[in-house]
């Protein structure tokens, strides 16, 4: 099972998320697909250029190769942003649903109620 590496799984997750976005009309499912897509990206990043048996770049251990710390550092930022974005998306959705009771992407632009 050599081909199941983090990178391949990451790419697969990305496209599964994309498929969800393309086909699902529920707004909650959109947000979920978005998270799946993002997880795919995170997985892809942290397994970039990873070799077996490498150690974290902490301390003075010299016997094994260091992992590249940059992608992990980037992903910390990206995960934080991702959480923020998901939270904002959910907030918007909740507000919208409570006020107007709509949970799906509608087909047409709603023309009523916008005369001003």
């Amino acid at each position: 099972m050599d081909f199941i590496t983090g990178e391949i799984v990451g790419i697969l997750l990305f496209f599964i998320g994309l498929y969800g976005l393309m086909t699902k009309k529920t707004i909650v499912k959109t947000i979920m697909s978005m998270s799946i897509m993002e997880s795919g990206i995170f997985l892809f990043y942290i397994t970039i250029n990873y070799t077996d048996g490498s150690v974290p770049p902490i301390g003075q251990a010299q016997e094994a190769a260091f992992v590249d710390p940059v992608p992990s550092a980037l992903m910390i930022t990206a995960i934080v942003i991702g959480i923020g974005v998901t939270a904002i998306g959910l907030t918007m959705f909740m507000h919208y649903k409570q006020k107007h009771g709509i949970t799906h992407w509608s087909r047409n632009r709603n023309q009523t109620g916008s005369e001003h």
Binding site: F14, L18, L21, I27, T30, I31, M34, M37, E38, I41, V85, I88, G89, M92, F93, H95, Y96, K99, H100, I102, W105, R109, N110, G113, S114
Partner: peptide
Amino acid sequence: KQAIYDGMIYFFVNVIGTA
């Protein structure tokens, strides 16, 4: 109402784009 709907579309489309 319409502004929130449009804002949401803008938000999701662009977040996915930046992904």
